[in-house]
Amino acid sequence: MPEGKEKKDRGWTEVHSEECKGCGLCIEACPVCGMHLSDKLNGRGYHFGEYQGHGCTGCGVCFYACPEPGAITVFKN
């Protein structure tokens, strides 16, 4: 949950890194370039997608671009 985050953006995206397979489709999809692949690897050996922390509009396109059931949650302000 984005509790305690600055609530100035319209949206917020959370990637559950252990559920990510690093396909990069969310990065491709995000219209505000809000996502990138982390330098770190998750437990399954993938560079996971990560929200950069600002700019999200809560549009949800990354949610639909992501093939995993629960890897991405999108919040709206």
Binding site: E19, G22, C23, L25, Y64, A65, E68, P69, G70
Partner: peptide
């Protein structure tokens, strides 16, 4: 938590 599909597979979407 994850499916058995390959990364980027459309089945998941």
């Amino acid at each position: 938590l994850t499916t058995h599909y390959c990364p980027g597979c459309g089945h998941g979407n």
